[in-house]
Amino acid sequence: MKKTNITLNVNGQAHEANVEPRELLIHVLRDHMDITGPHVGCETSHCGACTVEVDGRSVKSCTMFAVQAEGSEITTVEGLGNPDKLHVLQEQFKEHHGLQCGFCTPGMITRAHRLLLENPTPTEDDVRFGISGNLCRCTGYQNIVKAVLSAADIINNETEESLA
C-alpha cells in the first residue's frame, strides 16, 4: 500500500514520518519518532496506557490512525516534564507512591494533566471518574487519586507552579 509523508507536531516539535495509512498513532510515535513515553498496553482502547493529548483532547493513541493526527498539536508525557524538572503531577505521583511498576503512569499523568486543565478543583469523585479510562494493575488507584488531588492543591496554592 502506498505510503504517505506526514508531519506531526509533538511536544512543540515537528516530526516527519513516512507511514502507511493503517499505522496507528501509538506505533508511529514509538517506532518512527522514538517517542516512547506513551505505552502499548491492551491495544484495544481499554487500558489508557497509550493516552496522549491531541488538540486539547485526551486520546487513546491505539485507536487513532497517525494520518488522522496530521496537523494536530500532540502532547505526550515527554512534553510535560523531564528528569531535571519534573512536572508537578510527576512530583506528586512520586511523593504519594502513585506508581509501582510504572507502566500505566505516562497515560495516567497525561490524562490527569488534561483533567486538571478542565477542572482545576476536582473532588475525589471527579478524579476517579476523570481517570476511569486508565487502568492500573498495581496501586488500586488510591495513591494515584491522592497524587492528582495533591497536584491540584499545589497548583491552586502556589502561583509559581503552573500546569504547563
Binding site: 482502547s45 483532547r57 485526551s58 486520546v59 487513546k60 485507536t63 476511569s132
Partner: peptide, 9 residues
C-alpha cells in the same frame, strides 16, 4: 458512554 478518552473522540 464508554470512558473520558473515548468521549472526546
Amino acid at each position: 458512554v464508554a470512558d473520558p478518552q473515548i468521549r472526546y473522540q
